[in-house]
Nucleic acid binder design. Structure first.
Lengths: 211, 211
DNA sequence: GTCTATACTTGGATAGAC
DNA sequence: GTCTATCCAAGTATAGAC
């Protein structure tokens, strides 16, 4: 373990007060967001960060490791904040409303875009797939907990198991993110959240009635 | 219009009996499927096609145009076949069953993967987004017609408009494709189709009852 | 420990051979 | 009309300067 970049956990930081390293992670996020995976090269990222491209390899060992560090950076922050927001919800309507807010925020800030680019780009770099997958697992688990808390008490858990539904929710989320970015219009996706809110109200009345 | 590649419609073929051109389109599909957008270069594609890389630019003018031709090639064939299959369905259960078969086929053959790579890769090439979007529109319309035929006769069209639902269905489809490829396991996605089939049976009984 | 200059590889594009 | 040889730009990676 001679170089900082080949440590087991990518992007741990705390390796010292290196401004370049921090700037590279930030620039990697921006590059994935704006230019996409295919243009996320050591040269373009370092140019955005305002430092020499060789530093990518000094700090991270490879471009892939830098991109994974970028993914870690956006994930950690978001997962914590969103978990707190979801934990504070009591009804299905509230949950969907929080989900819609999260989606809008992700779309505007481009956080989910980073994830989508990494998933789609994973097939272009050997060994990247499992690493990306490991960083999605917490999100599927997060969605699973939210759904569990929603239907767990009613008998609906047997109709659609929480884990199964969570997989679908994450897939839908990623798909909406992709389409919204492609057509440059978030209205279609947001309309679906509005519709889901209406259905959640119905659902809430339903589960309340059979209790 | 000096070169064949800069004609208004990409990949029209019938421009002559050029084996190289056909091989390039085929190789582009394979490359997008296996190596992803980021590695879909003129060199790697032409190597797979067994011809000189300069031919990419001779026939298509640019790598992007070749990739779009590849997208056209998979789309035209699939859309025709799937439309016929869906038109032959009568009940919601049948529709979901056909959808599951299509999904399984797409996943195995990697057709939807080509689409996902092009969508995610679109942000890496200026001007590619609108071209890809234009090639997705027929699919959203296709999903819209299928859903319309399903709920159009009942009063449910007002609860969830067909166009809105179609957008969600396409997003879900793309998201499932992405996740399935990432974790190399189609079981999670297929389980959702099984669940949908059960719900479709319930739905069929419901709309039958209120008629 | 931090960073740069440099070596080598791959990719996009075209002028011109056949 | 079809294709290849060749040019230059962009990318990865590292040896070594500070």
């Amino acid at each position: 373990m001679a170089k900082p970049g080949v440590s087991s956990k990518v992007g741990t930081a705390g390796d010292g007060p290196s401004e370049s390293r921090r700037a590279l992670v930030e620039a990697a996020i921006e590059t994935l967001r704006i230019d996409g995976f295919a243009r996320a090269s050591a040269r373009s990222i370092s140019a955005r960060a305002g430092c020499n491209q060789g530093l990518v390899f000094y700090y991270f060992g490879s471009v892939s490791n830098l991109l994974l560090a970028a993914l870690d950076a956006v994930s950690a922050d978001r997962l914590e904040r969103y978990s707190a927001a979801v934990a504070a919800t009591a009804s299905p309507q509230e949950l969907v409303e929080v989900a819609a807010t999260i989606f809008r925020e992700d779309l505007d800030a481009g956080y989910a875009k980073v994830l989508v680019e990494m998933i789609a780009g994973a097939s272009s770099t050997p060994g990247l797939g499992p690493e990306v997958l490991a960083r999605i697992a917490p999100w599927t688990a997060f969605a699973g907990r939210a759904i569990q808390g929603l239907v767990g008490e009613s008998g609906l858990g047997s109709v659609v198991p929480a884990e199964e539904a969570a997989y679908g929710v994450v897939a839908l989320y990623l798909g909406l993110e992709m389409l919204s970015h492609l057509d440059g219009d978030r209205a279609n996706a947001l309309a679906l959240f509005e519709r889901a809110k209406q259905l959640a109200t119905l659902f809430g009345a339903f589960t309340g009635a059979i209790k």
